[in-house]
Amino acid sequence: MRKTTFIQAINEALREEMRRDERVFLIGEDIGYYGGLFRVTRNLLEEFGERRVIDTPISEQGFMGMAIGAAMVGLRPVVELMYMDFYLVCADQIFNQAAKMHYMTGGLLHVPMVIRGQQGGGKRYGSQHSSCVESTFAQFPGIKVVAPATPYDAKGLLISAIRDDNPVLFLEHKMLYFTRGDLPDEGVEYTVPIGKADVKREGKDLTIATFSYTLLQALEAAEELKAEHGIDVEVVDLRSVTPLDMETVYTSVAKTGRLLAVHESQANAGIGAEIVARIYEEAPYLLAAPARRLGMAPASIPVSKVLEEELLPWKNDIKATVLSMLK
């Protein structure tokens, strides 16, 4: 074991999978010679060459579509979107093409590819470079969505995503990039399964189900709630948004009787609403009090530090919501 950054974990997953499997290649803007705007793909061009690390023009529809075509004939592209907000520029290729291809061809074609990149607020990038996109993607069957919060999960889940036979959206929150965590030594192979949640903190009073950067915020909130109010929160890291591991959530709520779903994309019609709806449909008898969700207010992300902080559903909002649920 050793400590690495989130960025390093992703870089290692790419490198190891490219060494293991000739079919894996990378495509995106500034990823080769520059090594990626956030340095996630650094040194990969040097090892794998221009044939497998492809710098593109600013043509998201074009290279997303080409990656889909390459995947349809058996390669395993990993596409970097520089900012996740740009998925809207190539939304047809992602949703009408990649996500629907297997179904509308009656299973004759499939699209084994990964779309990865960074998202989220906290760095004052403003409305078009800070969105969290998981809730939108969750509306589309045919594509899986994963959003890890630790370097260990990031590496293990990215390897699983590359090996998956379906399109997988791999979300990296920009606030996570320089966080550090334990990682098995380089070359020690492990994977983290897609669609499997992980209890990151045990507790008995209330369950928070979350993922990505709000997981770290929830863990901090939990520590403070314990110290300040003696409240013991259990934190479930969903890790995948599609498919959702509701079983792990139910096991936790069976113990705590309370559920709060937290995410950074907006609350309205978001994945938290889905999680809450699911427990009311499938296991309402577990709840001792109404389940709730917490997400962004219906606004775009502003640049000003104070305005951005006001809107992001981070630690203080999580604490306040938990307290109101336990009143």
Binding site: F25, M64, G65, M66
Partner: peptide
Amino acid sequence: GIVGAQVPHAAGMALAAKI
């Protein structure tokens, strides 16, 4: 069914053949 969408797919298949 989407006008133009299949065109990058073919280019991607050609890219795959080249890779």
